[in-house]
């Protein structure tokens, strides 16, 4: 009875799913295809060509911005992975401690905080302490923004973990901290790696917070793209966007492989 009801609905269900996914993917597919268009005009298809990628190689401002973005992303993702993992360990294992509510509140607030506010508050701090704005200020801002994402991934992994391994190590005389490092840490490493990659892509993506916290002469890639996009569509932008999409796809595949590695070890995978 229920099976027939489900099958009766499934055609509408499939249509909804197909339309939803098409809506999500078509614009990006179109963007990628047009990045290989030989013609300057978007409406005219001039055949396949790598022309815009070659022009990109000569765009020094764009390349400098890309390099800046990659450095910021790698640096802030690493800091976020360390701090986010520590926070996850504290939330998952420390039980109730004083200030826990404030702690988790501060940790998760950037998830929903409008970027304009986060960017503005951090900038005002940097100005007040007279910090030179550039690489380090953007890195600090991105670390603050992305560490909660690492915590979410690592904390759910810690929660799904079989504690008896850790307990067995301690029963055999291993001190708690060492048991954690020797037994638990290797098990949550894939989750930390997945969190690092998530932080990396979020940092690479951010325009608003970077605009507030960076200084003159050190634009990140989204800032550079944004200022070009405001002037209109250019084929080179299609090309750089395609490259970013390709890079991010690689990161996603790596992250999902890291999560698979986790589930291959016999426990449930951490949801990304």
């Amino acid at each position: 009875m229920a099976a027939t009801a489900a099958r009766g609905l499934s055609r509408i269900n499939m249509a909804a799913l197909a339309l939803g996914l098409a809506f999500l993917y078509l614009p990006i597919v179109i963007l990628v295809i047009y990045s290989f268009n030989a013609s300057q005009l978007v409406t005219v298809w001039g055949g396949w060509s790598l022309r815009w990628y070659r022009e990109l190689l000569n765009d020094e401002a764009m390349l400098a911005a890309a390099w800046m973005s990659l450095r910021v992303a790698a640096m802030s993702a690493t800091a976020a992975a360390v701090l986010g993992t520590l926070a996850a360990v504290a939330l998952a294992r420390a039980g109730a401690f004083r200030g826990r509510t404030l702690f988790s509140g501060m940790l998760y607030a950037p998830l929903v905080m409008p970027e304009v506010i986060t960017g503005l508050t951090l900038l005002l701090l940097f100005v007040a302490v007279n910090a030179e704005r550039g690489f380090w200020t953007v890195t600090i801002a991105h670390t603050t923004l992305t560490m909660c994402f690492v915590t979410v991934v690592v904390q759910s992994r810690l929660g799904a973990l079989d504690r008896s391994l850790e307990e067995a190590a301690m029963d055999l005389g291993c001190p708690p901290a060492r048991a954690f490092v020797a037994v638990t840490l290797p098990l949550i490493l894939p989750a930390i790696a997945a969190g690092w990659m998530l932080a990396f892509t979020l940092s690479l993506d951010d325009l608003v917070i970077a605009s507030f916290t960076t200084g003159p002469g050190s634009a990140t890639l989204p800032i550079r793209i944004y200022s070009e996009v405001r002037l209109g569509v250019k084929p080179q932008i299609n090309a750089i966007c395609t490259l970013i999409v390709a890079l991010l796809t690689l990161v996603i595949i790596a992250a999902s492989m890291a999560t698979k590695l986790t589930s291959a070890r016999g426990e449930s995978a951490a949801p990304l």
């Binding site: 360390v82 701090l83 986010g84 520590l86 926070a87 360990v89 504290a90 998952a92 294992r93 420390a94 039980g95 401690f97 200030g99 702690f103 501060m106 940790l107 607030a109 950037p110 508050t121 951090l122 005002l124 701090l125 007040a128 600090i140 801002a141 670390t143 603050t144 560490m147 504690r163 850790e166 307990e167 301690m170 708690p176 901290a177 048991a179 954690f180």
Partner: peptide, 30 residues
């Protein structure tokens, strides 16, 4: 095990706690 590990786990909170206080809470004051 839970009781034994809470001590080090609490120490783990210090660094992210300070970071968030400095770069999330204090800026709102400004």
């Amino acid at each position: 095990a839970r009781r034994l590990f809470t001590g080090p786990a609490r120490l783990a909170a210090i660094a992210p706690y300070l970071w968030l206080a400095l770069f999330f809470l204090v800026p709102f004051g400004f």
